[in-house]
Design a protein around this nucleic acid. Structure first.
Length: 486
RNA sequence: CGGGGUGUAGCGCAGUCGGCUAGCGCGCAGCGUUCGGGACGCUGAGGUCGGAGGUUCAAGUCCUCUCACCCCGACCA
């Protein structure tokens, strides 16, 4: 008997519609993704949450390596003088840097910053490593932690310490740097859409929103389940700003000494927050199969001891059959089957496999999808074919569902009054408007509506823009997307 | 960092006008019956009442300070 998809079975979880942020916070903790730490603004990532991170790392790292990037590791502590070498950079990060001022019981001569990001200390190394145009491009990534002293924190979305990767590259020409910046944004886009099943809008950040010290910042923007926007990855073209600050020079083929052009790009544990808010529903998490720690949870069912023995035999046979093909977890705990169904749905496992006496009799198993609770009985022999197929279907359906949600909550308007109504409404959403790239107008809109310019999407109308800026009335130069953001 | 709120068992909470041995539900442990959508009975373990100081014969309860978390702002790839 199939249950209605709308039926809510996890009673303890508040409704998304009632209080989205409370739903989020409860879920992070009930699903055992993370916990609050004894240190203000920091979090403890629990094994289930960390397993998602490991899957993300593995898939994203492979995508980086396909583009020729190598991994390395740079120090946690950065000399103060380094941060000060790029004027905009220091100004942008100064308020949120944590400092080490004492060590070994003594005051340090030069305070050390706990890295908020590593452009500076990596720039210092790049200057030593790069001598010739033959040394370029230099393509480095590091998986690490960074610290930014945030005033207001939320698990995964904004914590004082967080895990991420930061890629740093150096190039011979500005065009090469720009190409790499866009290439890495495309890596993020494909990862988000194909692995995380999160549809995103790639685009360029406004001057106000760009990275401190960057020439240009690109980002992918995703819509969360409450209609708010979340920046899911960024890629910066740093021009020669940092190369000049750190003397990253090379001798070009023409015999001239020149400054490099550098880029940096990052994706963080915030992505896990994004997974929760994009895919989660009233019953809890819904994890895309490619990132789920367990793709299938087996729930054994039995009454009598002899039934249990037969079920055990079938379960172990299935486990062996799927080993190395599908990530499987068997729940042998003493909870009732119904309890397990709810528990693993809340924790977002994409497919549940029920194995009971009836299945033993038929030499089959019952598969149930997390996303729509559709059940199917599958013969054991076909499992290692059918299951990966089903997981791919779930992955695709999750992407489509998220995309449809974003489309349903994306608006286009030429009236600023309507713009304000949409942003102020319950569903929020993205608003796409004609725009003249005026920073003062952008700040005014933020002041008046709390909406920020998320990006100027790459996807622009063909044949240029007709009409005027929604705020200033000046001739529009592009279309821009505004939204309330996390 | 401003305004508001909350801190009592792992989680969620009650605790009246300051009063005697600090309670309830869930969870946890043991035993038994259950088991295809969050089963039940019995027995039991678990508390420096966020922390410090004060008032009092007496403080979970009143006062001061402090810390943490939540909500709203300001701030923030």
């Amino acid at each position: 008997m199939a249950m209605a998809n709308e039926e809510k079975l996890v009673e303890e979880l508040v409704d998304q519609e009632d209080n989205f942020s409370q739903w989020y916070n409860q879920l992070v903790r009930k699903a055992e993704l993370a916990d609050y730490a004894p240190v203000r603004g920091c979090m403890i990532i629990r094994p289930y949450g960390y397993a998602i991170w490991e899957n993300l790392q593995r898939l994203l790292d492979a995508r980086f390596k396909e583009t020729g990037v190598d991994n390395a590791y740079f120090p946690l502590l950065i000399p103060r003088s380094f941060l000060e070498r790029e004027a905009e950079h220091v100004e942008g990060f100064a308020p949120e840097v944590a400092w080490v001022t004492r060590g070994g019981g003594e005051e340090l001569e030069e305070p050390l910053a706990i890295r908020p990001t590593s452009e500076t200390i990596i720039g210092h190394s790049f200057a030593k490593w790069i001598q010739s145009y033959r040394d370029l491009p230099l393509l480095i990534n590091q998986w690490n932690n960074v610290m930014r002293w945030e005033k207001r924190t939320t698990l995964f979305l904004r914590t004082s310490e967080f895990l991420w990767q930061e890629g740093h590259t150096a190039h011979r020409t500005h065009a090469d740097a720009e190409e790499r910046t866009r290439m890495m944004l495309e890596v993020y886009r494909s990862f988000a859409e194909e692995d995380a099943a999160i549809p995103v809008i790639p685009g360029r950040k406004s001057e106000n929103e760009k990275f401190a010290g960057a020439l240009r910042t690109y980002s992918i923007e995703a819509m969360m389940g409450d209609g708010k926007a979340l920046q899911a990855g960024t890629s910066h073209n740093l021009g020669d700003n940092f190369a000049r600050g750190f003397d990253i020079q090379f001798l070009d083929a023409d015999g001239q000494r020149k400054h490099c052009f550098t880029t940096s790009w990052g994706m963080s544990t915030r992505m896990i927050g994004s997974l929760i808010m994009v895919h989660g529903d009233k019953n809890g998490l819904m994890l895309p199969p490619r990132l789920a720690p367990y793709q299938v949870v087996i729930v054994p069912i039995w009454r009598k001891e002899q039934e249990k023995a037969a079920v055990e035999e079938l379960v172990s046979r299935v486990e062996k059959q799927l080993k190395g093909k599908v990530r499987v977890r068997v729940d042998w705990s003493e909870n009732t089957p119904g309890w397990k169904y709810n528990e693993w749905e809340m924790r977002g496992v994409p497919v549940r496999m029920e194995v009971g006496p009836r299945d033993v009799q038929n030499n089959s198993v019952m598969l149930v999808r997390r996303d729509n609770r559709v059940k199917e009985s599958v013969p054991v022999e076909g499992l290692e074919v059918r299951l990966p197929q089903l997981l791919a279907e779930v992955q695709q359906a999750m992407y489509q569902r998220a995309l449809q949600f974003r489309l349903d909550n994306t608006y286009s308007t030429e009236s600023y009054n309507e713009f304000k109504e949409i942003i102020a409404s319950e569903k929020r959403g993205f608003v796409r408007v004609k725009w003249a790239e005026d920073s003062a107008a952008e700040l005014a809109i933020k002041e008046e509506t709390k909406a920020t310019l998320r990006c100027i999407p790459f996807d622009q109308p063909e044949g240029g823009i007709q009409g005027n800026c929604i705020y200033t009335g000046k001739p529009a130069t592009c279309e821009a997307i505004f939204a309330r953001a996390y």
